[in-house]
Design a protein around this nucleic acid. Sequence first.
DNA 1: AATGAATGAGTATTCATTCAT
DNA 2: CATGAATGAATACTCATTCAT
Lengths: 220, 220, 220, 220
Amino acid sequence: MARAKKMAASPRKLPEQDRSRATVDTIIAAAARILVRDGYDAFTTNRVAEKAGVSIGSLYQYFPNKDALLSELMRRHTHAIEDGIEAMAERAKSAPLAEVVRIAIEHNVRSHLIDPELHRVLSEVPPLGKLDWEAAFTERMVSRVRDAFEAKRAEIVVADLDLAVYVVTHTVEAVVHNAVTERLADLKSGALAEEVTRMLVGYLTGKAVPAKRPSRAAAE
Amino acid sequence: MARAKKMAASPRKLPEQDRSRATVDTIIAAAARILVRDGYDAFTTNRVAEKAGVSIGSLYQYFPNKDALLSELMRRHTHAIEDGIEAMAERAKSAPLAEVVRIAIEHNVRSHLIDPELHRVLSEVPPLGKLDWEAAFTERMVSRVRDAFEAKRAEIVVADLDLAVYVVTHTVEAVVHNAVTERLADLKSGALAEEVTRMLVGYLTGKAVPAKRPSRAAAE
Amino acid sequence: MARAKKMAASPRKLPEQDRSRATVDTIIAAAARILVRDGYDAFTTNRVAEKAGVSIGSLYQYFPNKDALLSELMRRHTHAIEDGIEAMAERAKSAPLAEVVRIAIEHNVRSHLIDPELHRVLSEVPPLGKLDWEAAFTERMVSRVRDAFEAKRAEIVVADLDLAVYVVTHTVEAVVHNAVTERLADLKSGALAEEVTRMLVGYLTGKAVPAKRPSRAAAE
Amino acid sequence: MARAKKMAASPRKLPEQDRSRATVDTIIAAAARILVRDGYDAFTTNRVAEKAGVSIGSLYQYFPNKDALLSELMRRHTHAIEDGIEAMAERAKSAPLAEVVRIAIEHNVRSHLIDPELHRVLSEVPPLGKLDWEAAFTERMVSRVRDAFEAKRAEIVVADLDLAVYVVTHTVEAVVHNAVTERLADLKSGALAEEVTRMLVGYLTGKAVPAKRPSRAAAE
DNA sequence: AATGAATGAGTATTCATTCAT
DNA sequence: CATGAATGAATACTCATTCAT
């Protein structure tokens, strides 16, 4: 029963931290699994603890309450998504408008394809739901998109730039979000991104954008 | 208003006296108010009854269970929304493509403006949520839009008509839905509808659609 | 609504600590006490928890539902009763018919005298009532009695052996069961067993069985 | 129990009484039907009223509470059963002991066969259950049986007459009661009555009673 | 730290009964 | 008298959270 307690001068600096981290990871993983497999109603702290193989006491050691657990789950998912976004933003700076739009879409698509089930369920969770959480993406995207649009202001015919940003970001988010369940094939093939890019670029520039042909690149 | 209707599942009992009709209305009103003001978590049958000033027993006299109450709330809201939709669909039949798009948007805008708060909260409710309920709108809109698009097939350059319908309907729904909380002014002024129409028509026809004078919009 | 009920499995959780075992015992004891003292209508989970001095939550930690609690109560009572039944059955094998009958009665008497009040109330409980529970005794007794009777077939004049078993088992059960409340003295003194044995043996063998000395009263 | 019989010629005189009686009858009938068909759990005052086609208000006009309704149902059933019992008792007076026993059994069988389902369900009903209600039969039977036994005291070898009465009445009741569900054929054919009579008479007189030919069915 | 026993306010729902119309 | 709308205490059961060991 008794385990080796930490000794005064422990040779290992982080065994407890490691163990803690492992426990936290296990809990988070169990939480995600329950959410995805059984839905939010089955997402109870006791069940998560059980599934994770730890006591609820331990769960509460690491998470002060249920929302904190959910938050952390979201934070991690978000983190996974936003990984590499800087590079994209950088790329967008020197790219033509069409490319900027395409990058925004690409980023959004990636967000949804990292763990589509989890992404969907997180966006429907009541306590910190869509408004509190998914809005965060959109918001971050909004500011980046706004920056990019301002850099290309000359090409954009829309008078109210904020409105343009609003239309673009929400269109992208909605179309991609629903495509995960409704048109996954088009999402993965890039056909959807193509359509939406053409639409948005046309909207922003006020010029017709020729539909792409099946194979090589286009529009610029 | 109307006479007592026979609903298959919702009300457990058809109100036969004025008093009971009033009770039902009170309950529904309280339910709506709680949902809007306090969210779905606060939407408990006991709380609704209390807020309505009736006993919990009375609530269950008219609604066999919680879902039935929610259903009836949705049904009434839907009914209010779909009032006059036939006329719109008729109008769309003989209208040019741009007008068809505008009508679709208009309809969606109307849906959201009848009771925007309620509309939003209903669309986030878990049990009979988006998939069971709001999907109904979109679905109805989808089939109407598809019919309209088929009638104008010649003008549309998008190869995959289903994809076009998908993009259009989801774009409209998302942009309008979020505008209720984020850009209510633009929604009401019609500026948003203007933008989106231009975007979608451009997308569908593959031709540039000139932006209207921007200044005329954002007032009000 | 349908009456679909889940059948109770035993305890939801195996008590792993002494404390929890004590809690379970306390709950069971309170349940028994309430059933005996106040009847089945007063047997509510909340009341049991209160009487046991534990929270309702604790009760449900160990019993997934009300029926499970009742089941466990029955199981324990049954266990107490059936203790030593094997020995009896063994004894009956090599005993004469009169002794077999006496043993059956004895066993039944013991069943009722372990905790007579509890026994009676359990046999009247609706959900898992007589048919589900007490029938189990009778059934077990029936098969044992049948075996014994078959072994003594030659001595038995009753043509339909099943009928004989039926008459014997139900007579024993009814007479003993009611004696607990109506003729406890005769039950304990053995006078009742004497009478019934004489009656049943006479019935089975078709021969007169002399009454024991009647004058020596059975008081205690 | 003679009631005021309907007078042929006064349509004005008793219309309300007639109607009342009809209402009461309807309610009782509905109550019986629900009890038999759906069990005691479904036996709610509201449901009875609905099934009877009257308002609960009306039900409570005639029955001060649920138990009163149940009581009346029992009273009527009892009444139906005890109809003709006087004649039987009379017949028993001048009959030999064997005949007395047979008559007691016959009476009990009739009780159970008038409306077996109702009889069974009434005997299992919690509030006024077996102890409060079925005991009434047994009790009435007990006193009559006791009277009859006393008249034949000379033939009876059992020392404790009360004990004899107890054994006889409970045996009869139990065997017949269970036979309704377990051995209905034997009940109706009279085979069961035959067996039990033989057993009891043997028990009472201390003499062997020859078994009848097993194959034959009905009475003598 | 870890455990898991214990908590109890809260949830949906039922049903005997009352009373204004 | 009849109606049926209204009542509300009571029920079985859940789950986030605390705390002694």
